[in-house]
Simulated scan of single mutants.
Amino acid sequence: MPASTDTREITNKSMLSRGWSFTTPSSITGMRGSCIIIPCSFTYSTSQPADLRIIWYLYRSNEYPAVYDQRQAVITKFDGITSLIESVGERNCSLKINKLNMSRNQDRLYPWVDVNPITSYHTLGSQIYEKTTQLIVSDRAQQPQLSIISIPRVGEQSRVSCSVQHTCVSAPPTLTLNGTNGDDVTVDTLVSDGIWQRTVERTWIIKETDRSVECTVSYSGGQSARSELRLNVESPPEKNVMTSVPAEVDAGSTFSVSCAVMHTYPLHPPVFSCSVQNLTSEVVHTQMTQGLWETTSTITFMVPVGDGVKTLNCSATFWRNKEQVRTVKLNVKG
């Protein structure tokens, strides 16, 4: 279940005529073992008292158990795990709760922003219930969202992004990417009050062997979830390129020509063959980028005797029996 806040906010325009009002979400969801922040702001219709006091209470129909109070003890289940995240002077009454556990699921909390505690006034009964924020504690991690920026092609740079929303910016979940090796950048972004998004982006050079990317999210409470993205890697075109030849060559002369092809199989490079009897032959393998190689075959041969046009073919055969042929015409003189 994703971390979330109910977008329906509760604003008490005049808290039982005490001259102040507050705004909080009607519900908020967090993970067991993690922390959560209930966003809260308040206003005063008159000048704000200098000795203003903020107390948070657990809703009960006939009592007022405090869950946060800087001056007095709070109930056991919230002892030592609650705090305010901003100062009263900034009119912020947001409450942080650490170490969420399932015993706090469905609890309803509400703030009291006054010089005196709520117990100093008359019994409030059911009027408070409609102004509470319900805590929803989940024990199931949501799947992280995986996406890739561009079509993955061998030898090209690509970037994959994995993100998840959460409620604990001080101890965010861990995102781990597997399936590729590259450089990671992690960013935390505030999505809305009480909700953050953690994103990890990995940049790498696509290889032929890349099949998928897996992202795992792990929370401090031990929950985890994963998502997998199939890459469907595209290979570059295996195009055989022959060096240019002069407009005319002399019969009986020695001539050299090179054929080159880009490929993604360093353990199975293409095999070249030529339509003329060569004197020498040299094959060179060069890594162009990560996952992309170039194999070049250079032959030296004697130009056949006789005027006219001679055909020179260069063939590259790949390990999958795919063949690429390039042909040039030699204008032979003599």
Results as ranks from 00 to 15, higher is better:
N105R: 03
E90L: 14
I75M: 11
I97Q: 00
S103T: 15
K131A: 08
L135Q: 01
V169A: 09
V115H: 07
C93S: 05
K131S: 10
P172D: 10
D114Q: 09
S161G: 03
T189V: 13
T123G: 13
K131L: 12
D139R: 02
D139C: 02
L95W: 03
G125W: 06
V74W: 03
Q134F: 00
Q127M: 08
L124V: 12
D188K: 10
S61Y: 14
K131I: 02
L95D: 01
G179L: 06
L109T: 01
V67A: 04
L190A: 15
Q106P: 00
S192Q: 15
W112N: 03
S163R: 11
L124Y: 12
P111F: 01
T133A: 00
R104C: 04
D193W: 05
E63M: 11
V191R: 05
N62C: 10
N98M: 15
L84S: 05
C168R: 02
H166T: 06
R140W: 05
Q142E: 13
I149W: 11
F78D: 00
T180I: 14
C93R: 05
L177E: 06
V169F: 08
L95K: 03
S150G: 05
G125F: 06
W196N: 07
L100Y: 00
A171G: 09
D188A: 10
P172C: 10
R60T: 06
V169H: 07
S83Q: 14
P152I: 11
L146T: 04
L109A: 01
G80K: 09
V67F: 02
Q70R: 13
E63S: 15
M102S: 14
H166V: 03
I149K: 15
G89S: 15
T167K: 03
N98E: 15
L100C: 00
D69F: 02
S83P: 08
Q165M: 14
Q143F: 05
N181M: 14
Y129F: 12
V74D: 01
Y121F: 15
Q134R: 09
N98R: 15
Q145M: 12
T133R: 00
S138N: 04
N105G: 02
I75S: 04
E156L: 14
H166Y: 13
E63I: 07
R153V: 15
H122M: 08
T186R: 14
S87T: 14
R153Y: 11
S87P: 03
L146D: 04
T186F: 10
Y121P: 04
D188Q: 13
